[in-house]
Design a binder for these strands. Structure first.
Lengths: 128, 128
DNA sequence: AAAAGTGTACTATGGATATAATACACTTAG
DNA sequence: CTAAGTGTATTATATCCATAGTACACTTTT
């Protein structure tokens, strides 16, 4: 069962996009695998405290992109071929790191400062 | 005059927030200083290709937060005390780095991999 | 003084996001 | 088999984001 208990919704970003990102991140990290069950729309809606339609929108888009399969009446399942996972694992970190580097440069930070900051925060967040 | 020519608008984030972020980043980086002139609402609207009302919203919020001063009929000016700048320079990089570390952990990356990726991309983007 | 530029305010419209409330067909568990 | 659970669809409403057009008072430039 794909876990959503750790997902903390932040505002400023559409909820349905955060749900999509959470699923893709799980697949890229290897904690979510092909064939795995997803919680029902209603159950996830209750867990996150959002409208069922919002969950449905996220799941519908994920299905259109080929990341899950749905059959009326039955639970939805993750669908991720080895090739899909490989592409995701390459592109996701790269995309996020690029955006981060750009924003740190805009702040006038140096490469060394940035790396040091990342290392410090990485250890900080390990103890939580 | 505060520069906006380098600002590339991305979708998924409200335009007025990107403008606010751009100004704050400039102040934190030291390229935008107290008393500096901002382009007029209409001029910036034309430069970025967005509605004047959107620019006005960004500037109004910046003024409410104390980052600029406006007087009807005259150009708006940056307002940034040393204390304000100091706080910004500390908090902005920290906030962005925290979000980055969290997202890389969600992807299952290690600290070493992440640092290596940042260093690689940092040099790549220098040649552009 | 006159003209151009500037900040500000207002109404109206459309799209995206999210919620709310139903409804129905299908699958699964009892 | 029956009931509960599930995917799916629909309509309605509210808010935010962005655009469009207009208007007016003030400042700066000419």
């Amino acid at each position: 069962m794909v876990e959503f208990a750790t997902l903390r919704l932040e505002d400023g970003v559409p909820i349905y996009l955060q749900i999509i990102r959470h699923v893709k991140a799980g697949i890229a990290a290897g904690t979510v695998v092909d064939g795995e069950e997803l919680p029902s729309r209603r159950a996830l809606s209750a867990l996150l405290g959002v409208n069922p339609n919002t969950i449905q929108k996220a799941f519908r888009l994920l299905e259109e992109e080929g990341w899950l399969q749905s059959h009326t009446g039955a639970k939805s399942l993750i669908s991720a071929t080895a090739k899909q996972v490989e592409t995701l694992r390459k592109n996701l970190p790269d995309y996020q790191a690029r955006a981060f580097v750009r924003s740190m440069k805009a702040l006038g930070a140096t490469c060394a400062d940035t790396v040091a900051l990342v290392e410090t925060l990485w250890k900080e967040e390990e103890s939580e």
